[in-house]
């Protein structure tokens, strides 16, 4: 914890200790039950699998970082709640990713929002026009960060595996079938 933070409450030693232990780790609670990286070309396959497993789409968002744009898809399930997050890395020079509109029509607006704010192009999207932004908006997409402010993957997600998982792999299938927030809840 920073000095600034510690000042008003007279440097709580205990909290500092907790912080020290935590800092190198991932935060205790992330809200995710299964977290995986995917290669862009395998996104559709993975999403189809999630569709068959009765997941619904929570949202599609995008994080701008040094390596490129990380498009983040959140899924959850009504019957057996458990959050699955898919992360796909795409390059800054050519920000293109297949649209999942055909599988989840609800993604259409989320994708348009990402297009608005980051300029990510979703190939196969039927109607990729500005949604929230003024169509006469000039200049770069508003949520792009400046070159100097960009962080890289290890700074943002320390201690996490960044190697893409194949949606055909047993691990993926097993995880999405078994994931449920019950087990992560019991831990905390």
């Amino acid at each position: 914890m920073s000095e600034e933070n510690a000042k008003p409450e007279k440097a709580p030693d205990k909290e500092k200790e907790v912080k020290k232990k935590e800092e190198p780790q991932v935060p205790k609670y992330t809200g995710y039950d299964y977290d995986c990286f995917l290669a862009p070309q395998e996104l559709l396959k993975a999403v189809t699998k999630l569709d068959h497993a009765d997941f619904f789409l929570e949202d599609v968002s995008c994080v701008d970082m040094q390596e490129g744009f990380q498009v983040v898809y959140h899924f959850d399930r009504f019957s057996q709640p458990g959050r699955v997050v898919l992360r796909v890395m795409i390059s800054r020079e050519n920000p293109e990713i297949p649209s999942i509109y055909d599988i989840f029509p609800g993604a259409a607006w989320h994708e348009r929002e990402c297009f608005d704010f980051f300029g990510v192009r979703f190939t196969g999207h039927p109607n990729l026009i500005p949604l929230l932004l003024d169509p006469e908006h000039q200049g770069p997409p508003p949520l792009l960060k400046e070159e100097t402010a960009l962080k890289d993957l290890n700074q943002l997600y320390p201690d996490r595996v960044h190697t893409p998982v194949s949606p055909d792999s047993e691990e993926f299938v097993k995880e999405i079938n078994n994931c449920s927030n019950q087990k992560s809840r019991n831990q905390s």
């Binding site: 600034e4 409450e9 909290e15 935590e22 809200g31």
Partner: peptide, 28 residues
Amino acid sequence: PKAPKKPKPPAGDVYFALEGARGKIGFH
């Protein structure tokens, strides 16, 4: 009692969802 006035959370990400009057509110 030791609530941080200027929090600086550690690096990482979190998804928190709760039930609003209109449905699921999510903060990523």
